[in-house]
C-alpha cells in the first residue's frame, strides 16, 4: 500500500506543479488545491499508515494497541482549515485581479515589472 500511496502522492504533486505553471489564474488555483491535497496525503502516509482503528477511546475502557497515529491527523486538520482560508482569499484575489486587469492571462500581468 505504501508503494501505491507514494505513487499517488507523486501523481498529485506532478499534477499540481503542472497546473501552477499554466498561464490562467483559475488553473493556478486548481494547482494550489492539488498541491495542498498532495501534502495532506503525504503527511498522512509517511507517519506510518496502518489499517488501525480510529484514535477514539471507547467509553469506560482503555484503548488497546492497533490505533492509527492521532498526531498527523491533528496536523492535517489544522493544515486543511488553514489552506481553506487561504484558498478562499486566493479566489477573491483571482476575482479582483481578473476584474482589474481585464484578463486571466498571467502573461499580461507584468506592468509592475517593466
Amino acid at each position: 500500500m505504501i508503494y501505491l500511496l507514494a505513487v499517488v502522492i507523486g501523481g498529485l504533486y506532478s499534477a499540481g506543479f503542472y497546473m501552477m505553471a499554466r498561464r490562467s489564474l483559475l488553473k493556478l488555483v486548481i494547482g494550489l488545491a492539488l498541491l495542498s491535497h498532495a501534502t495532506n496525503l503525504l503527511i498522512f502516509t509517511v507517519s506510518g499508515v496502518s489499517r488501525g482503528r480510529p484514535p477514539l477511546i471507547p467509553d469506560g475502557q482503555a484503548l488497546a494497541g492497533g490505533v492509527s497515529d492521532p498526531l498527523p491527523q491533528a496536523l492535517i486538520l489544522t493544515a486543511l482549515v488553514i489552506s481553506f482560508g487561504i484558498l478562499a482569499f486566493a479566489l477573491a484575489l483571482v476575482l479582483r485581479t481578473n476584474e482589474s486587469v481585464g484578463t486571466d492571462d498571467l502573461d499580461e500581468m507584468r506592468t509592475t515589472e517593466q
Binding site: 489564474l25 495542498s36 503525504l42 507517519s47 500581468m109
Partner: peptide, 29 residues
Amino acid sequence: KQLEGGFKYVTLNLVSSALFLAGVGLLYG
C-alpha cells in the same frame, strides 16, 4: 499594481508553504 504584485507574491509563497508542510510531514515520519 497591488493585485498584480500580490498575486505573484501569494502564489510563490504558497509553494513555499506547501514545501514546508511536506517537509514537516516527512520529518515527523
